[in-house]
Design a protein around this nucleic acid. Sequence first.
DNA 1: TAGTTTCCCGGAAACGTTTCCAGGAGATGT
DNA 2: ACATCTCCTGGAAACGTTTCCGGGAAACTA
Lengths: 352, 352
Amino acid sequence: MTSSRATLIQVAERAGVSLASTSRALHGSGASEAMVERVRAAAAELGYSPDVTGRSLRLRKTFQIAFAVADIGNPVYVEMMTAIHEVLAPHGYRVVVMTTGDTPASTTELVRSLGSGFVDGMVLSPLRTDDGLVRAIKQAPVPVVVIGRSLGDQGIDSVSTDSAGGIGQAVRHLLETGRRRIGFLNGPPDTTPGEARRRGFDAAASDPGFAAERVEVALAEDFTVAAGVAAAHRLLAGAPDGGARLDAVVAANDLLAIGAIRAARELGLSVPEDVAVTGMDDTELGRVFQPSLTSVSLGSDERGHAAARIMLRLVDGDAGEPQTTSVGPRLVVRESTVPRPARASAPGEGVR
Amino acid sequence: MTSSRATLIQVAERAGVSLASTSRALHGSGASEAMVERVRAAAAELGYSPDVTGRSLRLRKTFQIAFAVADIGNPVYVEMMTAIHEVLAPHGYRVVVMTTGDTPASTTELVRSLGSGFVDGMVLSPLRTDDGLVRAIKQAPVPVVVIGRSLGDQGIDSVSTDSAGGIGQAVRHLLETGRRRIGFLNGPPDTTPGEARRRGFDAAASDPGFAAERVEVALAEDFTVAAGVAAAHRLLAGAPDGGARLDAVVAANDLLAIGAIRAARELGLSVPEDVAVTGMDDTELGRVFQPSLTSVSLGSDERGHAAARIMLRLVDGDAGEPQTTSVGPRLVVRESTVPRPARASAPGEGVR
DNA sequence: TAGTTTCCCGGAAACGTTTCCAGGAGATGT
DNA sequence: ACATCTCCTGGAAACGTTTCCGGGAAACTA
């Protein structure tokens, strides 16, 4: 917190050369060996470090990428952010975290604010989308890569995953392991993830091979453990018509799944013996939980990586057609669905 | 991704007034009512939004604050980041996430890079510290607030917590609930948190009222669940001299604690009946775990809030003496230490 | 040796904004 | 009616950097 910093002009004076040469010697090309040495020495003496705001203004480039989600505390988004940072940092880009708010309108406002030019691009994972948001993204003054929905046909670069298909994988797994009375624990259906999960479950349930005898659905107020506990209680409290109790719960989310396990325990049911539970997202939380959680991985880190790589391509001016890249869902079977755990691996397996 | 954006000059031309007046009309004071209206209209027609890089250059202010830690995926740091963002965003500051690397040297390098002026300040939580880092922080060209160690006497603004005292609270709690053979599961002792925990345990163990009959220590390779499992196995495998097995484990961290619970289960021990386990940090993970984890809260969000508020004060030029503010540790008793859970509250208690 | 190319260097402009400064117009006071 | 003051406006400079452009010297070719 000391003396004001040295500027390029001062370095130039110190080295006794022009400003232009100084700049060239430090960054660009076209400087003689002697010049480079001389300027370097002067810069070192003065402890010069280039000012990025001046640089940004001239270059029209900030070397910053925004990452915007509704809830930066959500483990899934944390994983994405980490992945994005991993890819971007080595290329000299900084990551700015932002929150979208819950509504399409607030998200749209955020996208519009990109006009201020504080970042070179934005990786966005909107919780809810509408036409206005899509329009805003298309008109954004900097590249926007969307994680969550395939908007390639809309002319928007996006990284998607087949979470609907993932729900299908979970359902099939439960049927294959003998479950017949299946509850579907979803979050708010007006969100992008909620809508996709619902679609996935409906598709699975209308499959010819769908052998379930009983199906019930409950909606949690949001994608949290607490909401999951409450909704799962309704699901597991007992069949309203006196039918047999559910023996499996497909949760839209690891947090909801853990809520379901908790509710089951509170009702005196054991997991997986009495009721099997599947989650989605394959979070650390689910991996270390006891019983460890069977979950559909949606490759949060892969998606983050992919989005970041697309972003790098875009900010380097390599435009090309907007495209949707997709990472496949992958069921990871753990203790919460199979009575004799398939834990053939070493202690602490799946734990980082 | 369309036409290049409108500049203030274009707004001025459109409004038919000078550049200076345009700027004043939009931000500053000293513009007539008519002028403001006229300029506003022109700006609206052109869809003008001010360019922050130009603004930053002139104002010598970026409205950005860096948040730097070793591992941005760590739940504790995520909580801090969220808290910091909550405080700063309403004041118009953006948060830039950065990683310090594992060593004091890499952290020092990061602090030095602040000379480039891409942020107005940095909230830093270094994993390891040395004299060079302390010097670099003191000489940093922008305010730095350190979370983790009290460096107020070194002339550095910092937010600390008494994690050593927190370990003491955990130990006392275990003694009070009848435990007598206590294991201490620490992380790398050369880290700031590791060192503080060790100090705390040593202090507790040398207290006159320390009634334990047996004490053992194990060091995990890092602060992760996997490392915790491995180290806890050593701790719980049985006393080398054939003495009675430990009946309590004080872990330096929630992740290590969960590792310990897992190891206990693998050894056929039940928690908390056979062995009680305490964690530290009071993370979401520990709250939803089964058994829910008795943990010492170090107020990650409080610390984040405090650091952000100090930062706001600093960037607003209100210097004052560097100070250390401290938030107290707070033991939260849950199922992992008391056989008959004190869960008097509603289902899903402590779960967000 | 003269002409041509290559290589470096310095001057100056530009990126978009805020603010200092001077001046003009109108209002107020005597 | 004149001086003084207040209020508003426009010109111009400044923040720190990169890069275009022109020119001079050196190196090459014929």
